[in-house]
Computed example of a mutant assay.
Amino acid sequence: MKVAYIFSSTTSQKILDNMIIPQLEGDTHGAEVAGMFFFMDNTYFLLDGSELGERLRQIQEKNGMLLMACDKCAIERGIENKLISGAKIGCFPQLYAALGGAGIDQVITL
């Protein structure tokens, strides 16, 4: 099964940091993650130099998943040029284009 995650809630960090990332690092997640999209303050998860960002970068390098921050959210926070290598910024049209051929079975919003 292929999934994509959209992180929009204030509880996203706990779920990502304590559940999803450790499962991906340990190859025990049970689904292939094609991409992750981050809204609002969750765009900080992709900040270069942060522990969470570094872990996401390493996973992305290993499995090639898309990491994308909402462009408007990143710009409002002044971090559009401070994201980890490999992360992109964009809006829904860019997300759809990037994941359109990935064969996503389920989109999960947290």
Rank of each mutant, 00 (worst) to 15 (best):
V107T: 15
A69H: 06
A34N: 05
P22M: 01
A69K: 06
K14M: 09
S85P: 07
F7T: 02
I6W: 10
C91Y: 13
F7P: 03
I84H: 00
I20H: 00
F45S: 07
A87R: 10
Q13V: 04
T43E: 12
G64K: 03
M1S: 11
F39L: 15
L16K: 08
G86D: 06
D27P: 00
Q58H: 05
T28Y: 01
Q106T: 08
C73E: 12
V3S: 09
L46H: 05
L56H: 03
I6Y: 09
G78E: 03
K2Y: 13
P22D: 06
L24I: 08
M40V: 10
G49C: 01
G26Y: 05
N18S: 05
E80V: 13
F37D: 11
F38S: 12
G26D: 14
G90A: 07
I6L: 15
L46K: 01
L110K: 01
T11R: 11
D41A: 13
K88W: 01
M36W: 04
S12D: 10
L47M: 07
M68H: 13
G100P: 09
T43S: 11
M68L: 06
V3G: 05
M68G: 13
T43I: 11
M40W: 14
I89D: 00
N42S: 10
I59D: 14
F39V: 11
I84C: 01
G86L: 08
F39W: 15
I89K: 04
E54Y: 01
A98I: 04
Q58I: 01
E80C: 08
R55V: 01
P22G: 04
N63V: 05
V33E: 03
D105I: 15
L66D: 09
C70V: 03
Q60S: 10
E25Q: 14
D27F: 09
A31Y: 09
L95S: 02
I15N: 07
L83D: 03
L66C: 10
Q60I: 00
I59M: 08
N81D: 15
Q60C: 02
